[in-house]
């Protein structure tokens, strides 16, 4: 089941200049993502999955092409506007967790709210609720190195959720986890999806992708296939 259009990219191109050479990471991607979709992006290594995710996540800007998010053209935005979109619209989960090593789980989750300008008390309440949602109510004061890999990724997911983003992006979120922990994390995504969260996830593994309702495969910087499976 899918709602209105959330993201539309057309002719999205990203080139990297490496001295005299130019690497074409994306060569014109056209794609639409609707609200409350659960989308997996697959493809061989180097096909441009992470590049596409970084563009959608506003961490990077395209060389050319258009990117519309919630009816706003993001591809024309400057640094600070992109930061605002990252802060309000997007929750990004990385393969390597990317948590502040010396800060507690709670503080890590608070981080986006700090930059949203929320007051301290409200911030802590929101962060605590997000941690409860991923099942870490009892680990709030722990530092990342006092948590398991799966728990760290839950903290990262809580941080991605805390601002109520339009879309949750995850680039190989289980890439650094063993299979049973991966299953736990996938269950978290599944649950978020059921609650109405739009999820886009990059993965290598077919059984991870099988959680998604739609699978897009990239090859050499372009969309190779786009399959929608009807929910069971």
């Amino acid at each position: 089941m899918s709602g209105e259009s959330l993201i539309r990219v057309s002719g999205l191109t990203r080139e990297y200049r490496m001295g005299a050479e130019t690497v074409h990471a994306l060569r014109g991607v056209d794609m639409e993502i609707r609200r409350n979709e659960y989308l997996a992006i697959m493809g061989p290594s180097g096909s441009g999955k992470s590049t596409l995710m970084n563009l959608i996540g506003c961490l990077d800007s395209p060389t050319c092409g258009e990117y519309w998010l919630n009816g706003v053209e993001v591809s024309q935005m400057q640094d600070d506007e992109l930061a605002r979109v990252r802060n309000r619209e997007i929750g990004f989960v990385f393969q390597t967790f990317n948590l502040l090593p010396r800060a507690s789980a709670l503080h890590n989750v608070e981080l986006p709210l700090i930059y949203a300008g929320m007051s301290g008390r409200e911030r802590r309440q929101h962060a605590a609720r997000a941690l409860e949602r991923v099942g870490l109510a009892d680990r709030m004061a722990h530092k990342p190195n006092e948590l398991s890999g799966g728990q760290r990724q839950r903290v990262a997911i809580a941080r991605a959720l805390v601002n109520d983003p339009s879309i949750l992006l995850a680039d190989e979120p289980t890439g650094n986890l063993d299979s049973s922990t991966s299953a736990e994390i996938m269950a978290v995504f599944e649950e978020l999806y059921r609650q109405g969260q739009t999820v886009v996830m990059v993965t290598h593994e077919a059984d991870i992708a099988s959680h998604a309702r739609r699978v897009v495969t990239l090859l050499d910087g372009v969309v190779n296939s786009d399959t929608v499976r009807e929910a069971a």
Partner: peptide, 16 residues
């Protein structure tokens, strides 16, 4: 640098 990357990825502006 890594810390700065994290902060920027969750929405810190240049000014922040």
């Amino acid at each position: 640098t890594f810390e700065i990357g994290i902060r920027k990825s969750v929405g810190a502006k240049r000014g922040d």
